[in-house]
């Protein structure tokens, strides 16, 4: 259990993840009395601003075209996640997303208790990801419920609200969906859903700016090539080679785990600008 919280970034991140859960619970228990904070991960109301999931809003715009209701505060809220992704990368996925938290718990149990080897290794090229995103957008536009079946953070937050309200038929339905996705995910080596399928994650990854927050391998410090970071990476990336970090969601696990040649001289670090 100690491993689960070990490290500066990992500990902060766990606090964020647990904090998100408690925050939403607090919102749901007080939602009758206030309208300042309301909503789920599909759309969250923060004061007047309606922050919306980029994928949900893009399908909404595509579905309604000229009839779309372009409410100023919703459009503002649509830009906020994109701006955060532009500057800090996919921090939403690693620091806030409840599905990621759920999966990390299961992943921890899987590797530390059952010690089963992952089965299938899957890799997708950036081009095939774009093709899938275009397909997902088209499906979302022509089949209105489609995004709500595959976006896990939104589904989990709606589920939490139904738990507060004791609406069990909905809970059963969405729980089956979530278990189905988890089941698929557990058969693949490291997170097929978050890396290749979740359309919101793909959009946030594309909105990312190369100069924003990212993991770098410093050239002035020597790397032992122990590859601990690559073993520990929750997404199955290889930070010790210092390449293809476009999938990286800035969780900071590799920075925590990195052991340099001398103390406090770890070659892996966060860089901003």
């Amino acid at each position: 259990m100690k491993d689960f919280f070990k490290g500066k970034f990992t500990l902060t991140r766990r606090l964020f993840q647990i904090g998100t859960f408690l925050f939403f619970l607090a919102v749901y228990y007080t939602s009758h009395k206030q309208s300042f904070l309301l909503g789920t991960f599909y759309s969250f109301k923060l004061g007047p601003i309606h922050i919306v999931d980029p994928f949900i809003y893009l399908t909404y715009l595509g579905r309604n075209l000229l009839k779309a209701d372009l409410f100023v505060w919703t459009v503002t809220g649509f830009l906020i996640p994109l701006l955060i992704a532009f500057l800090f990368g996919r921090v939403f996925c690693s620091w806030i997303c409840p599905y990621n938290f759920l999966y990390e718990i299961l992943d921890f149990l899987k590797t530390h208790l059952f010690r089963k080897k992952p089965l299938i290794y899957f890799e997708a090229s950036p081009k095939s990801k774009k093709v899938w995103l275009a397909l997902a957008l088209a499906l979302g536009i022509f089949i209105p419920p489609f995004p709500y079946y595959i976006l896990m953070p939104g589904l989990l937050s709606v589920l939490l609200h139904q738990l507060v309200l004791h609406l069990y038929s909905f809970i059963l339905f969405s729980l089956l969906l979530i278990l189905m996705v988890l089941f698929v995910d557990l058969f693949f080596k490291k997170r097929i859903w978050c890396k290749f399928i979740c359309p919101t994650g793909l959009i946030l990854g594309m909105a990312r700016w190369k100069g924003g927050l990212r993991i770098i391998k410093r050239k002035d410090l020597t790397c032992k090539e122990c590859a601990l970071c690559s073993f520990e990476c929750p997404l199955g990336l290889t930070p010790h080679l210092g390449n293809h970090l476009e999938d990286c969601y800035n969780c900071g696990r590799c920075v925590d785990i990195c052991k340099g040649l001398r103390k406090k001289e770890n070659p892996l670090d966060f860089k901003f600008l």
Binding site: V27, Y28, S31, H32, S35, L38, G39, T40, Y42, S43, F44, K45, V52, I56, Y57, Y60, R63, N64, K67, A68, D69, P144, Y148, G154, V158, H161, L165
Partner: peptide, 17 residues
């Protein structure tokens, strides 16, 4: 139109006293 326009965020359900 409602089926197309509703983004199913659940705010109406949350605020309903």
């Amino acid at each position: 139109e409602f089926v197309k326009k509703c983004i199913r965020c659940g705010k109406c359900q949350q605020i309903c006293p």
